[in-house]
Structure formats: C-alpha cells, structure tokens
Computed example of a mutant assay.
Amino acid sequence: MFENLLNLVKENAGDAIINNTAIPNERNDEAISYASNSIVDGLREALVNGNINDVVSLFKGGNAVASPVAQNIHGGFVQSLMDKFGLDNNQAGGIASNLLPSILNKFISKTNDPNDKSFDLGDIIQKLSGGNGVIDIQNIISKFQGTGNLGGGLMDRAKEFFN
C-alpha cells in the first residue's frame, strides 16, 4: 500500500514538485516522500484519534479537499516543506495545494474502484492502525459500505476500538 501511494505521488508530482524551482532537482524524491508520508500520517492520526467518521467521509467521496482529514494532511505536508526545504508558508502551501487534491482524489477513486487492486481498503486500515487489533477493521469497512453504525456517543465510538 505504501509503495503504491508513493508511486501515485511520483506519477502526479509534475509541476508541483519536479518542475518547481523551489525544490532542488536532487531533492525531488525527498519531497515526494514527504507528500506520501503526510497522507499516511494524516490518515493514521485520524484513525488513532477516533475520527473514523472523518476518514469514512473522505473515502466516500465528495469534496476531499474540504474534509478535516485532508486539511490535516495538507497542514502536515506544508510544515514538512517549510521545515525540510526552508520554504515560506506561501510557497509550501502552493505546492501542497497544487499536488494534494489530485493525489487524494485519485487515491480515493482507486480505493473505491473494485477493478483496481492497487489499494485495498481493509489493507489500508490495517496498516494505518498498525495491524494490532485496536481498530475493528470490519466495522469500519461496513461504515464505508453504508451498513455500519456511524452514530453513537463518544463512549459508543470508544467501545469500537476495544471490541
């Protein structure tokens, strides 16, 4: 999954990273890696923090850019670019805004396409949760399919992680 995501970012890095003078050519792969890591870290953080509904909403489609998970991914990537490349907020934000929406939309589309086996939802969730059984993968998948319980109070949502 992680390698497929990295390849997806590489395939779409064009103007945002590869043809961008703010990113030295010898560091293009590094910037691509930060973009991929930001996506993984943003999804993992949402799952670990119990924001399952936000992840479900992101993968169900709609406006991926406006979702809280996507905003967190964007912020993490911007911060990485500023920290690692010395870019200012506007430069880093421009790169993230040019790259992440298309990557997220393609990632979501591939995950939801039953004919595309490059990304499997169960595999993604298991790897993001560390595969340690803390997150009930079947329950989350059922939420993506519209058969799971999206409601409930905080205690109900917390119970999902320990059952």
Rank of each mutant, 00 (worst) to 15 (best):
L104M: 15
H74L: 05
G131A: 10
I95P: 06
I137M: 03
S57I: 03
D83L: 05
I124C: 03
S129R: 07
K106Q: 15
N98E: 12
S67L: 07
N63Y: 07
A70W: 00
K106C: 01
N90T: 14
K60N: 15
G75K: 08
L58C: 04
V55F: 06
S67F: 06
D88L: 09
D123K: 15
F85M: 12
G131W: 05
K106N: 11
N89V: 14
D116S: 13
L81V: 03
N105K: 11
Q126N: 15
N132S: 14
V69Q: 08
L81P: 00
I124Q: 02
K127W: 02
P101A: 11
L100V: 04
S57D: 13
A64I: 04
V69F: 09
D123P: 04
V78P: 00
S80R: 01
V69G: 08
K106D: 12
K84P: 01
D120E: 15
P114S: 14
P68Q: 11
F85E: 11
D113L: 06
N89A: 14
N89M: 10
A92M: 09
Q126M: 10
D123Y: 10
K60D: 09
G62R: 13
A96S: 15
L100C: 03
V56T: 10
K84A: 10
A64F: 01
P101N: 12
K106W: 01
F77K: 01
N63D: 15
L121H: 02
K110F: 06
G122W: 06
K60Q: 15
K84T: 07
L104A: 04
F119D: 04
S97L: 12
L99F: 08
N89S: 14
N72E: 13
L100S: 00
G93P: 09
N89R: 14
Q91M: 11
L100P: 00
I137R: 05
Q71H: 05
N63E: 11
A92S: 13
V56P: 02
Q71M: 12
D113G: 05
K110Y: 07
G133C: 06
G130H: 10
H74M: 09
I73C: 06
N89T: 13
G93N: 12
V56A: 11
N90M: 10
G75Y: 05
F85V: 11
Q79L: 08
P68S: 15
L81M: 10
A64G: 03
G75N: 15
G86K: 08
G86M: 07
F77A: 00
I103R: 02
I73L: 08
I95G: 07
I137L: 07
T111G: 08
S80M: 02
F119H: 05
I103F: 05
F119L: 07
D123S: 15
F85L: 12
L99H: 03
K84Q: 14
S118G: 10
V78C: 02
S102A: 11
I73S: 02
S80F: 00
L128G: 07
P68D: 14
L100G: 00
G62N: 12
I73T: 06
V55C: 07
M82N: 11
N90R: 13
